[in-house]
């Protein structure tokens, strides 16, 4: 098998990315000049570059339609509508987020903590487990005791299966 390690050919080395940068004109001048010398003498690289340049030209030929004249007006109207619809909480939220991103201040931290406490209190009041029937709780407790007993029995059985201390020393 032919070694491609010392080859100057990017295609042989599997480094076509350098050819892509060459075609895009983002390769440093020195590197581009070196590669240009190689591309003129290497048919594979020349073909690669020609095809890529063709793709480039094909993409450049993609003409676009002009943007609708009232694009900005429509956007600014949407922003205005949004501001009108939610002025209060939105302003508070933006200030809070702004403060958070620049370091949480106590003026934000205190109301945030108060809100968290309120939420926790609300959850405690509407705890879904509060109204659970007594029978269910008793059944759960009985099952837990049963499971614990079974675990103890299993442990006892394992201890019996273990060899005596004297055997372990042998």
């Amino acid at each position: 098998m032919k070694s491609t390690k010392g080859s100057a050919c990017p295609v042989e080395r599997g480094e076509e990315e350098i050819l892509l940068r060459y075609c895009a004109g983002t390769l440093a001048a020195e590197g581009a000049a070196q590669l240009e010398g190689h591309v003129t003498s290497c048919s594979r690289c020349r073909m690669w570059v020609q095809e890529q340049q063709m793709v480039w030209r094909a993409l450049e030929s993609w003409e676009l339609e002009p943007v609708t004249a009232d694009f900005d007006a429509a956007l600014l109207a949407r922003i205005a509508r949004e501001k009108e619809a939610r002025p209060g909480w939105r302003g508070w939220w933006e200030r809070a987020v702004g403060a958070w991103s620049g370091g949480l201040e106590w003026r934000v931290a205190v109301p945030a903590a108060a809100l968290a406490l309120l939420l926790a209190a609300g959850l405690a009041v509407t705890n879904p487990f509060r109204g659970e029937p007594v029978e269910t709780a008793v059944r759960l407790e009985a099952r837990e005791i049963e499971q614990a007993e079974r675990a103890l029995e299993d442990l006892e059985m394992l201890r019996q299966l273990e060899p005596p201390e004297e055997d372990k020393k042998l």
Binding site: R78, W93, E94, W100, G102
Partner: peptide, 24 residues
């Protein structure tokens, strides 16, 4: 699709505006 592209672009700039408070 030009119409959809403009609609999505509105969404993009709306998001930019909404994110202004957290922009760094």
């Amino acid at each position: 699709n030009q119409a959809v592209a403009e609609e999505l672009a509105q969404e993009v700039f709306l998001r930019v505006y909404r994110s202004r408070a957290s922009y760094e």
